[in-house]
Amino acid sequence: MTDDTDDIKGTPALDPVISDSVELRLARQIRELDREMMPERDLWTAIERNIADYPQRKPFNLQGDWMPYGVAASLIIAIAALLVNVVGLEQRNSTLLAADYAIDSIDSGYVNVRNPMVDQFRETNKNLDQATLDDLYRNIEIMAQARKDIEMQVRANPENTKLVEMLMRVHERELELLKQDYSQPGRSL
């Protein structure tokens, strides 16, 4: 046997004849063993105590148990989605709509004051030289554009009170510019 074993160790790919011979001999030795073997000491008491101390948990039954959790989870997700995406957006949208409405009202009121002043400005300053008039009109346009830019920002950021204050100041300055009689320097209308 020793010789055979040495042969097996030294052979990378076992010869089928030798391999069969080893297996047969192992099988014979197993059959010759006693059918029952007693443990050297009684282990059963310890096994019973361990079973009592650590009872086995009921295994999770994926097929039968996921449904209630899934329904609850989907409800939570749905409510959260409703709160975040529907209620939140509605609040944001209603704020933006309110801001739009407010800005439209402010703008409309302002334009009602401004436009007659533009006509008055045109009439009052018609005798100014063309270069000065062009310069004034260019600056009136700059003010109007600034007003529109700020209005746009206020619509997008209605919570920003500083922007609203700035818009008011630009209104004030535009009117200040328009009410001047530049043909009579130092005298405002």
Partner: peptide, 9 residues
């Protein structure tokens, strides 16, 4: 000066 833009020229 006169309030007449041609005079400014």
């Amino acid at each position: 000066i006169p309030s007449n833009n041609t005079s400014w020229c």
